[in-house]
């Protein structure tokens, strides 16, 4: 299970890294980035899904 952010879609709305700060962080422009390679635990998957359902730009993708 892996999560990723499409950098072309992300506009730096900032929801992902405030909801799931262990999975997402931000770059120096404030855009969301996935920490490490985005591999998810079961608990991580739940949080990643919550972040995904709060992203206004639909920029988060999860491979299950």
């Amino acid at each position: 299970m892996k999560v990723s952010i499409d950098a072309d879609i992300c506009q730096g709305q900032g929801r992902c890294f405030s909801i799931a700060p262990r999975i997402f962080t931000f770059d120096d422009l404030g855009n969301g980035v996935v920490i490490a390679d985005g591999t998810l635990t079961d608990q991580g998957l739940e949080l990643a899904r919550l972040a995904q359902s709060n992203c206004p730009e639909h920029a988060i993708f999860i491979e299950e």
Binding site: Q11, Q13, G14, G30, L50, N54, C55, P56, E57
Partner: peptide, 23 residues
């Protein structure tokens, strides 16, 4: 409300630059 994909800061390339500060 846990799932809240609101557009208060706009959508697309003009997303409010100051959204982090506003929050």
């Amino acid at each position: 409300r846990e799932v809240n994909r609101h557009a208060a800061f706009g959508l697309g390339i003009h997303r409010c630059v100051g959204s982090n500060l506003a929050r």
